[in-house]
Write a protein that binds this DNA or RNA. Structure first.
Length: 230
DNA sequence: ATTCTTACA
DNA sequence: TGTAAGGA
């Protein structure tokens, strides 16, 4: 019979055996903060599937050449990350599809750019969230684009900074569209607003890119993007 | 006697 | 990271 993913608990020796490490190594990892403290019942330490998944992740990253200290940084980053339910809320009406990733897959996307600092920034931006020992990226599109930019040589830190900037402007634009709708057409279906706003921004961005790419030898200040309301 | 920690190699 | 010694 195959072992279903149960919620059983393990004592040190059993957990270590399942994870393919020694008990000494297990304690070593715990001292370095690579795994969270076990549930303590008097003298004995109880570990669960959560810890087991983490241990397998650690050995996987170790095999990929990551250093223990590096993994410790990643672990700290993930443990400090908010939970997915918190970020995704109760089914927000976004068109973006989340992507579930293992830490290894994330390393595949960004290679050595997947530093603790960058991951921390991505968590802060809300791009990434932790769900158990897995990671969730809130938008497959943003994930793919980010990976592509990194492949093109853009540092991930710069990609994330750009994301933060775009986020601010997008927030301003969205706030403006909503304000206009509520002021002049309060009865309009919000879904129509999405479509119209998308079209406006897409067209304007397209033309803006044309302008920026064309006269790059004619120095010209960037157009100001500020919501000047009452 | 068992389970885990401390300390040392 | 292994192991011996010791607390609970």
């Amino acid at each position: 019979m195959a072992e279903g993913r149960e919620h059983r608990e393990y004592r040190m020796e059993e957990l270590a055996r399942e994870a393919g490490i020694t008990v000494r190594t297990l304690r070593f990892y715990r001292e370095r903060g690579l795994i969270q403290p076990p549930r303590r019942e008097g003298r004995i330490a109880w570990y669960d599937d959560h810890h087991l998944a983490r241990l397998r992740t650690i050995t996987g990253l170790l095999d990929r050449g990551h250093t223990l200290n590096g993994i410790a940084d990643l672990a700290a980053t993930f443990d400090s990350g908010r939970d997915v339910a918190e970020v995704l809320g109760l089914g927000e009406p976004t068109e973006e599809t989340p992507v579930r990733l293992t830490p290894e897959k994330l390393a595949d996307y960004f290679a050595d750019e997947a530093t603790a600092e960058n991951l921390s920034a991505a968590l802060d931006l809300g791009y990434l969230a932790t769900d158990g020992d897995e990671i969730v990226h809130i938008s497959r599109r943003l994930l793919e684009v980010s990976a592509e930019l990194v492949r093109e040589g853009v540092p991930l830190s710069a990609v994330l900074s750009s994301g933060r900037l775009v986020r601010e402007h997008a927030d301003a634009l969205a706030a403006h569209f909503v304000r206009v709708l509520r002021t002049h057409a309060a009865d309009t279906d919000p879904d129509q607003l999405r479509t119209l706003a998308h079209a406006v921004v897409d067209a304007e961005l397209s033309m803006a890119l044309d302008r920026q790419l064309r006269d790059d030898d004619a120095p010209r200040p960037a157009p100001d993007l500020r919501g000047q309301d009452t």
